[in-house]
Design a protein around this nucleic acid. Structure first.
Lengths: 241, 241
DNA sequence: TTTGGTAAAATTGTTGACAAATTAAGCCGT
DNA sequence: ACGGCTTAATTTGTCAACAATTTTACCAAA
């Protein structure tokens, strides 16, 4: 697999120092949640988890409070924390927000585009195309490529708070959803074409068009996700109410 | 002062149960921060604060972690937490996000408007006008009215996550800014006219127009805020870096 | 069998004490 | 007097034990 230098933007999020146990276990738990290793709606048992990670309950509770800040768990007083379980309408709400914010990010990225940033985008597209042409491309890779594309756009917006909001909070929620629902392979080629159009608009410094295309791109993704019914999660979210 | 029934939407945020010390002190600290009782950029001393609130450091640390989730404090490992201090460009970033999200909220509110919601909006406008006509209207009241208007719009969008994002996170950051910078009185009449136009668009179920007007309304507020230089905060934020 | 209450177990909330790291103070040499 | 080092004090991070609440298990009565 081709590894382009620092287009993978995870570094800016992953290098949160593991100096403190609370932050360390926070990241481990976040990974476990978005990967689906901890089921949606499942209760978080403090003594059990603390024992599992070999730490005390103090740092663990702080980690859980940080997860609550990312909206990945819900805490009820004297009843503990549960991993969030999103039903279809809640995912729709997130997509509405995402459509608006990534449209903004895309417009800003277009307004502030430079030859260097466009080169980085083109390289990412090339990498994406290469993945699609390879016979044994797995869905996870495609998803990673898609995520990287959106990460890069948001970073090129040069709005730090927007970056934190999308890449530090909303994207983890979407990862959580994606880990539960199966991807629709037919959408990949279409998504690639849309990415290509978006980069063209950014390179042309056409902010309005870039925003429009990104919004439509996300609206398309939402429609695809909406058309397929997710059997397992909708019910679980009802149970916990 | 006239008190209309439950147009004040704070209840949905304030009634977070004070059953646990951590949540209680979290809300107290949040109020103290946004009101300016704790200075921007100032360090948070755990033993001192814990003693001040008469609690132990455990719950206090959890409260601080929740404040970090709201982006009201910044925590650095082994160095403690500091109240955020936003310079002008950071406030601008927030306004960009706000313009996008409240535009979305306004469009949704228009699409889903009912006679009842429009009545509530009209009552709020009447209250606002009454405040403006009264001779001794103070800036704080006007700000409260303005905040209530935006709260109501966001709630009428019926997007729960959007509500939490704006009213549970971003608005507190803006309150923090407003507490530091002096309001510009000349803008109030203009803001009221803009509110009126927005309600008209919502009542007419014209989502596109409502979104446009709200975006312009916030862009105007941003321009006003941008034109006045804030003397004290810009430097403080430099110090802490 | 079901229902209700009671007691036991488990879990969450809270506390104070200890360890590690950072910051401040003091000292010495130049 | 100034800079750098050592040491002391403060502060943060972590832990284990205690208190309070909730959940579960159990038994008796209808």
């Amino acid at each position: 697999m081709v590894k382009i230098v620092d287009i993978s933007l995870d570094s800016s999020l992953k290098d949160t120092k593991c100096q403190t146990l609370a932050d360390d276990v926070f990241m481990q738990l976040r990974t476990a949640i978005v990967k689906g290793d901890i089921a949606s709606g499942s209760k978080i048992n403090e003594p059990q988890l603390a024992n599992s990670y070999g730490i005390s309950r103090g740092p663990l509770r702080e980690a859980i409070r940080r997860l609550e800040g990312c909206k990945l768990v819900e805490i009820r007083p004297n009843a503990g924390a549960r991993v969030v379980s999103l039903n279809k309408s809640q995912v729709l709400e997130i997509y509405e927000i995402r459509e608006s914010l990534e449209g903004l990010a895309c417009r800003l990225a277009a307004d502030r585009s430079t030859p260097e940033s466009c080169t980085a985008l083109r390289e990412l597209l090339a990498r994406q195309e290469q993945q699609m042409q390879s016979a044994s491309w797995q869905q996870s890779y495609q998803h990673e490529g898609d995520v990287d594309f959106h990460y890069l756009i948001v970073r090129l917006s040069e709005n730090q708070r927007l970056f934190e909001l999308l890449c530090g909070e909303l994207y983890y929620l979407l990862k959580l959803c994606r880990a539960r629902t199966s991807a629709q392979p037919s959408r990949h080629e279409r998504a690639f074409r849309e990415h290509y159009q978006i980069v063209d608009a950014i390179e042309g410094k056409d902010g309005e068009l870039a925003e429009l295309l990104m919004r439509r791109h996300i609206a398309n993704a939402r429609s695809t996700l909406l058309s397929q019914h997710q059997p397992q999660n909708g019910d679980i979210s009802q149970e916990q109410l």
